[in-house]
């Protein structure tokens, strides 16, 4: 794909994201026309509608975008450094670690429920580091890391199930955390996640070449003068920070981290110079759109955003896969990363 075409695709993604942002802010359980929204925000501070727009809908839309960006970027990085199409934040233990920490607080120490975001974040990072150490053997082979991640995740999963079995009366209080959702988002949550999104996105904008080189395989990368272990470690830390901060705010929202990078890759190709911005824009769009649907479809009831995301995203992904966009058309020039081209 030519770079001009890629650039115009990025521009299209950007326009789509901006449009989705306005659709998300413009729609909700309470019907308000665009003019009413603007008037309320400018002249009607303190009114009920102002509360709804400013304190409920806006933070929620922004949080949805940030969560989408963080999880998708995290997935895109991991699929790259692991050279595995099934890699996602859960591969490096983010979901298992955050889930375990969150459940321990919610079930064993419900009095400290307000510590859940903090605990989930620490749990996510802790699990990643544990998996990294377990996979270390003079260096980290992606395959070993994936296997260690699977084993640790299943161990934590057993712990989670044990907690839920021993305290069945408290399970209803943790379901929302396990499924993931954006229903109680305020500016507070936005401020928790925003620094990570900005910081990691900026760093990643400077690193696409390094990830492209890593994709060529360790030997070639070393030959090109890249410190493979250090680069890989930096990327793992970045993806863990991104996913950990998202999960700590919305709970265990799956799917985004796996599917969004794939869909973007199918549309725009594997060059991380374009894939990173593409993933950021498409990730934000996807979660904002799905969250809008999840709160409007059965309003005033809401359904978990994960359900909408899977029911929209999976068929779309399968459609792209079936059409053979991306994966089949580009034969690898390097030969050792066919799966990505």
């Amino acid at each position: 794909m030519k770079s001009t075409k890629k650039k115009s695709l990025i521009l299209a993604f950007f326009i789509l994201m901006v449009a989705t942002f306005f659709i998300s802010v413009g729609n909700g359980a309470v019907n308000l026309s665009p003019m009413e929204i603007i008037e309320t925000l400018l002249y009607n501070k303190g009114s009920t509608d102002y509360q709804i727009i400013w304190n409920v809908r806006l933070p929620r839309t922004i949080a949805a975008a940030l969560v989408g960006i963080n999880l998708s970027l995290s997935g895109a990085i991991l699929q790259g450094i692991m050279k595995n199409p099934l890699a996602s934040p859960s591969t490096i233990g983010v979901s298992a670690g955050a889930g375990m920490a969150g459940l321990i607080i919610l079930i064993l120490f419900p009095g400290y429920f307000y510590l859940v975001p903090f605990a989930a974040f620490i749990g996510a990072l802790g699990a990643t580091m544990l998996i990294y150490l377990l996979a270390w053997n003079g260096g980290v082979m992606p395959t070993r890391m994936i296997l260690a991640g699977t084993a640790v995740s299943s161990l934590f999963g057993a712990g989670n199930n044990a907690l839920m079995t021993f305290y069945p009366d408290r399970v209803s209080g943790v379901l929302n955390f396990m499924v993931g959702g954006l229903s109680a988002i305020t500016w507070n949550e936005v401020s928790l996640i925003l620094p990570y999104t900005i910081m990691c996105s900026i760093i990643l904008m400077f690193l696409p070449t390094k990830l492209n080189i890593l994709l060529l395989g360790d030997e070639v990368a070393i030959g090109l003068g890249l410190d493979v272990e250090r680069t890989r470690f930096i990327f793992i830390v970045l993806s863990s920070l991104l996913a950990g901060s998202a999960v700590s705010v919305v709970g265990l929202l799956g799917f985004v981290g796996l599917m969004v990078p794939h869909i973007t890759r199918l549309l725009i190709g594997s060059d991380y110079q374009y894939l990173f911005p593409g993933t950021i824009l498409f990730g934000a769009t996807m979660v904002m759109l799905c969250d809008t649907i999840s709160r409007v479809l059965f309003q005033p009831m809401e359904i978990p955003v994960g359900i909408v995301m899977s029911s929209l995203g999976a068929p779309f992904f399968l459609y792209l896969l079936k059409k053979g966009v991306g994966y089949h058309r580009h034969k690898s020039k390097q030969g050792n990363n066919k799966i990505w081209r």
Partner: peptide
């Protein structure tokens, strides 16, 4: 799960 907006309204 109920809409926070609707609750405020």
């Amino acid at each position: 799960t109920f809409s926070m907006e609707k609750l405020i309204k």
